[in-house]
């Protein structure tokens, strides 16, 4: 490592390498069931909808893929009177 390296921009190739490793690990594993996230989202929302009325525009689903573990986050905004509305409708 040259001393001049301290003053130059950080290198980008390691980032490329890491991003590819994470991405391809997932693409290889999920070849065939790429629908998984969509299915999960729909089923989770169906369960919530059974108990309260939710606005589908106020649902945020995000997926974070890591090398060892992935997270699926479902963010649902529940209005103040969601449960009441549902009961009324029933």
């Amino acid at each position: 490592m040259s001393i001049f390296r301290f003053f130059s921009k950080p290198t980008s190739a390691p980032a490329a390498r890491e991003r590819l490793q994470v991405l391809l690990a997932h693409e290889r594993a999920s070849a065939g069931d790429s629908e998984l996230v969509t299915v999960l989202r729909d089923e989770i929302l169906a369960v919530i909808a059974k108990h309260m009325q939710i606005d589908s525009d106020k649902v945020n689903v995000t997926m974070e893929r890591g090398l060892q573990m992935s997270t699926l986050a479902v963010d649902v905004e529940i209005p103040f009177d969601a449960v009441k509305k549902k009961k009324k409708a029933a």
């Binding site: 290198t11 980008s12 190739a13 390691p14 490329a16 390498r17 590819l20 490793q21 391809l24």
Partner: peptide, 14 residues
């Protein structure tokens, strides 16, 4: 060599 392009070994490993 400067670290701004994937190296041969990187691509081979992936």
């Amino acid at each position: 060599e400067r670290g701004d392009m994937l190296k041969v070994d990187d691509v081979l490993e992936i």
